[in-house]
């Protein structure tokens, strides 16, 4: 299972408009193109997860994640905020890169944790945050994933 196969250009947004944590989460959720009710439920679930502790893992990266009945299969989205946003990250630094993961409560393939681990591994590669800031199109994001074998 490759991360590259779980993203599409439509689920990549290279300029997140919002500044607040809540609005950023909503903007990421919108990339999944769910109906309004599902978006509302998903937002609450992601918020509750954030209340347990920020998903900002440091070095400008956040991985908001949850399981939710509103998706049939594991869905991923990526959003970039070039000038960074306050996300209560572990290192206290602004977050530039947001990887959203939403999985159904039960999966046949049980991909959720391996995907979470792969994204954390990919994003913590020392030069990845800078490379992500340089990409200029969703396709370039997908190419970067491919190049890294992710």
């Amino acid at each position: 299972m490759k991360l590259r196969d779980l993203f599409t250009p439509d689920t990549v947004k290279l300029e997140i408009d919002s500044d607040s944590k809540d609005e950023i989460l909503k903007e990421l959720i919108e990339l999944l193109e769910l109906d309004d009710k599902s978006e509302a439920i998903l937002f609450k679930t992601l918020k509750r997860r954030e209340n347990l502790g920020s998903t900002g893992i440091g070095k400008g990266i956040a991985i908001p994640h949850c399981r939710s009945l509103v998706v049939e299969e594991t869905r991923l989205a990526y959003g970039r905020k070039s000038n960074g946003a306050e996300f209560q990250a572990i290192d206290g630094e602004p977050v530039h890169h947001f990887f959203l993961i939403v999985a159904p409560p039960l999966e046949v393939s049980n991909q959720y944790l391996p995907i979470l681990g792969k994204i954390a591994q990919f994003a913590k590669d020392p030069d990845i945050p800078e490379k992500l800031l340089q990409i200029d199109s969703p396709d370039a994001f997908l190419t970067l994933l491919e190049e890294r074998g992710a």
């Binding site: 439920i41 509750r48 997860r49 949850c66 409560p105």
Partner: peptide, 10 residues
């Protein structure tokens, strides 16, 4: 109930 379900899953 859906919210509850998601929380219970976590």
């Amino acid at each position: 109930l859906l919210e509850l379900q998601d929380l219970r899953a976590k």
